[in-house]
């Protein structure tokens, strides 16, 4: 049985001046967590902004939960069902965590004070910030601020949650806490999680989209992405010049990814190997520069 997709779009194109940030992208998202992987400048943020209705595409169309954001009324309906955590969520630093989420709740049309405050308490509980709700945001750690922004995105129990690199800049413990919250949030809704960390995808995502230079390079499950690297990862004592990417491991040998030479010592592929192979050579070079 196929369920109706939460997001369905095709031909999405956005140009910055002459060059395309998003070039003829098609996307289809269903319930669960989908990872959006790609290097800097791949177009991940632009795609999220388009889906969040912040930036209209220059070409192409899409629907969210059956609504067309190309019309004023459709855009309004999408926004009522949307949670969005931007790449650089800004804060009013003098607001407390509670006041800030309350402010976003007002923007999300929670006019009744009691109902709004109940909802603010609910989302702050969901991200485990109840204890610090009265603290000013400028006194919170980076990880806590990220969770305040996530709480704001969870207001109104949105059907679509768009998270733009939420784990960047967090320490491992904070990242783990954040992942727990995202995994919980993705149980009954559609989550699109932009990241350039394959660990996030391996731990959280049922599906993954790889982008580079404004194009979708891969779409499937993390296991399928890993499988693409089967037979294309090998070990050697020197970096193989034919490899798409290669690096010295802790064992002192080189791990090479690409098209192996005859008789190469093949290794078990990982999600990261599959990701590197999904990118074009130029993107891999830019990542290693």
């Amino acid at each position: 049985m196929t369920t109706r997709p939460t997001v369905s779009g095709s031909g999405l194109t956005v140009r910055y001046g002459g060059s395309p940030a998003l070039d003829n992208v098609s996307v289809r998202l269903q319930e669960g967590v989908t990872g959006l992987l790609g290097p800097n400048g791949a177009g991940k943020t632009t795609l999220l902004r388009v889906l969040a209705t912040a930036v209209p595409p220059d070409r192409g169309a899409f629907t969210v939960l059956g609504h067309d954001p190309g019309t004023g009324a459709g855009r309004q309906e999408v926004r009522r069902r949307l949670g969005y955590l931007p790449q650089n969520p800004g804060f009013h630093p003098d607001f407390t965590a509670f006041a800030f989420v309350d402010y976003v709740a007002i923007l999300k049309e929670f006019a009744d004070r009691s109902a709004r405050h109940r909802e603010v308490r609910r989302v702050l509980d969901a991200v485990n910030l109840s204890e610090v709700r009265g603290k000013r945001i400028k006194r919170l750690s980076g990880g806590m601020r990220q969770r305040v922004a996530l709480a704001a995105a969870l207001l109104g129990d949105p059907g679509l949650l768009l998270l733009d690199e939420p784990t960047v800049g967090l320490d491992p413990e904070q990242r783990m806490q954040f992942r727990e919250v995202i995994a919980e949030a993705g149980r009954h809704r559609t989550v699109l999680l932009s990241t350039h960390q394959t660990e996030d995808v391996a731990m959280l995502c049922q599906r993954v989209i790889v982008m580079a230079q404004g194009h979708v390079r891969f779409e499937g499950t993390p296991a399928e992405l890993t499988a693409r690297a089967a037979g294309r990862v090998w070990s050697s004592t020197e970096r193989d010049p034919q490899a798409r990417a290669g690096w010295r491991t802790g064992l002192g040998t080189f791990r090479n990814v690409g098209d192996p030479p005859q008789g190469a010592d093949l290794l078990e592929p990982t999600l990261e190997d599959g990701y590197l192979l999904a990118l074009d050579a130029q993107s891999v070079e830019a990542m290693s520069a």
Partner: peptide
Amino acid sequence: RDRFDTASAPSLPTDLAHRSVA
């Protein structure tokens, strides 16, 4: 008035911008 309901892509920071949460 509807022009204030969305942004043009270049008016927002690009995804190349350095990330800071501090």
